[in-house]
C-alpha cells in the first residue's frame, strides 16, 4: 500500500492542500453558475415573486410594506433594492443564456474546444449586457 503510485484522482476539485486536479475552464464556471442561479431563483426568487403577487392581491397596505423594504422614502431603490433587483435580473439572464447553451450542447453541437470555450464566455458577456440594457431602459424610459 505504501508504494502506491500517485495517480490522478477524480472528480474532486480539492484534495490535500486545496489542490485542483483539472485545469480551470470557462465551461466549469458556466456549469456551476447555472446551478447557483437556478437554485437561487427557485428559492429566494420564488419567495419574492409570491410575496409581490400576494401583496398586490392583499391591497395597498400590504403592497406598501413590500415597497418599503426595497425603496427609500422618495420612491427610488435603496441598497437592498439594488442588490436584489440587479442580482435577480442578472440571475435570470445568466440562467437563460446558459440554459440556451445547454440546449445547443444537447443537439451535439459546440463541443470543439475553441467553440465550446467561446460559447461559455459568451453567456457571461450576453447576461451582463442584457442586465445593463434592462436597467438602463428602466432608468431612461
Amino acid at each position: 500500500m505504501a508504494s502506491k503510485p500517485a495517480r490522478p484522482r477524480s472528480p474532486h476539485l480539492f484534495s490535500g492542500p486545496m489542490q485542483i486536479h483539472y485545469r480551470w475552464s470557462p465551461a466549469m464556471t458556466v456549469s456551476i453558475v447555472h446551478r447557483v442561479t437556478g437554485t437561487g431563483m427557485a428559492t429566494v426568487g420564488t419567495l419574492l415573486l409570491v410575496w409581490w403577487l400576494a401583496a398586490i392581491a392583499a391591497g395597498p397596505g400590504a403592497y406598501g410594506v413590500f415597497l418599503d423594504v426595497f425603496t427609500t422614502s422618495t420612491g427610488s431603490l435603496n441598497i437592498l433594492g439594488w442588490v436584489v433587483g440587479v442580482g435577480l435580473t442578472w440571475s435570470v439572464f445568466q440562467h437563460m443564456m446558459s440554459g440556451i447553451r445547454h440546449l445547443v450542447l444537447d443537439t451535439g453541437a459546440a463541443f470543439e474546444l475553441k467553440v465550446n470555450r467561446r460559447l461559455a464566455v459568451l453567456t457571461f458577456v450576453a447576461s451582463i449586457a442584457l442586465t445593463v440594457a434592462f436597467w438602463l431602459f428602466l432608468g431612461i424610459k
Partner: peptide, 10 residues
C-alpha cells in the same frame, strides 16, 4: 405551497 399562493393571488 408557493404555486398555490401565487395562482390564488393572480
Amino acid at each position: 405551497a408557493t404555486a398555490g399562493t401565487a395562482i390564488f393571488s393572480i
